[in-house]
Amino acid sequence: MQSVVLNNIKKVYGKDQKIAVDNVSFDVNQGELFGLIGPDGAGKTSIFRMLTTVLLPDGGSATVEGFDIVKDYKKIRNIVGYMPGKFSLYQDLTVAENLHFFATVFETTVEENYDLIKDIYIQIEKFKNRRAGKLSGGMKQKLALCCALIHKPAVLFLDEPTTGVDPVSRREFWEMLKRLQEQKITIIVSTPYMDEAKLCDRIALMQEGKILSIETPENIVESYPDKLYAIKANNMHALLKNMAAYEKTLNSYAFGEYAHASFTDVALTENELTEYLKGHGLSDIEIKKTEVTIEDCFIKLLKS
């Protein structure tokens, strides 16, 4: 059963008709954790706003839980939870007040669905009388999630919930999402962090309003066509320069402490490459085959 269906959805902005979302189609299954992965300006927020009925599409159609996003907007507003890009809380209300307010707006009470948010709320409960504006980024994000969940939505839309949040809070946040998924809530989440993509059931890689690929993270990684090497040397900058200049290089770029590279010549040996690099004054050279990540795939898609 499909929870969310997009059919050639299009959105253009302004006088110059800038295309933000360019005929995007995809389906999200019920209970799925679906990720929209892409940099700023890829069109993720516009898609979220159209699906949550606060923005009208300029073409195509879409449904959420079977309801049309244009005609049945009232019904959709009853059943979805939405956390916009900016954490939308009242900074001058306390944690508890924010939660109670959103519960009432959604015609429910905190008690009624407490078990749904319990895991998350417990972590911020000791600050319940603190004003939301005085919370740290990670705490705010947890509170915003509680507020978006309080009415037990069928579909949860999270627009870049982890942007600007430190790695520890990000990891905790994804653990919470995984637990929510067990409650049969469909979750659509967007993020600019590629490392978060592998935690989704399926992902859509987006760039400039277009979808580059929709797959499970495993399949995206598996479909990577080239053999990928991780290479290290004493000087990263020099390594990158020399790799880019190497005639047999197909792709090469920095990747953490290593440079990742693929080659036009499948038969290329590690010795051959080592010699080349040594010849250009590099030392401490380490070359190994490495596993492909989503980020590698994204870079590959961007370059093609």
Binding site: G38, P39, D40, A42, T163, G164, P192, M194, Q207, L240, Y253, A254, E295, F298, I299, L302, K303
Partner: peptide, 14 residues
């Protein structure tokens, strides 16, 4: 580099 795509991020680091 917040919110920048992985390719541009690398160009930035260059």
């Amino acid at each position: 580099t917040g919110g920048v795509d992985p390719l541009t991020r690398r160009q930035f680091w260059e």
